[in-house]
């Protein structure tokens, strides 16, 4: 009985290290793009590049380093709810300040 019980316990999803190294390399490349954008195109373009690239970097960290892609969907939903609430706070406040 006790044997079958331990067998039921799920084996953790172990990803290959090569995948993590690839994600890390992608993060470094994206960092280089952000820095390059602000150095060579200071001003609006640089800010736009950072605003597009930074969330991509965050998504890579969340999905692979933080395993969100391989967890139950509930974790992703929970995360999106938290980020959604934060976006409403920031969005509504900036909406007010930027359009005064």
């Amino acid at each position: 009985m006790s044997n079958s019980h331990t067998a039921v316990a799920e084996k953790p999803h172990v990803l290959p290290d090569g995948l993590f190294v690839m994600v890390w390399a992608a993060l470094l490349v994206l960092t280089a793009i952000t820095v390059g954008g602000s150095v060579f195109f200071p001003g609006k373009v640089g800010i736009l590049v950072a605003m597009i690239v930074t969330p991509i970097k965050a998504t890579l960290i969340l999905m692979y380093f933080m395993h969100l892609k391989y967890e139950k969907k509930a974790f992703t939903i929970m995360f999106l709810v938290a980020v959604g609430i934060l976006s409403v706070f920031i969005g509504l406040t900036l909406f007010d300040y930027l359009l005064r």
């Binding site: 952000t34 820095v35 954008g37 602000s38 640089g46 800010i47 930074t54 960290i61 933080m66």
Partner: peptide
């Protein structure tokens, strides 16, 4: 590990906000 990645995640946003402005 999860905590450490969040610390990393926050820094990723701090970089463009302060250094690349």
């Amino acid at each position: 590990g999860l905590y450490w990645h969040l610390v990393d995640l926050v820094w990723i946003f701090l970089l463009p906000l302060f250094y690349l402005t």
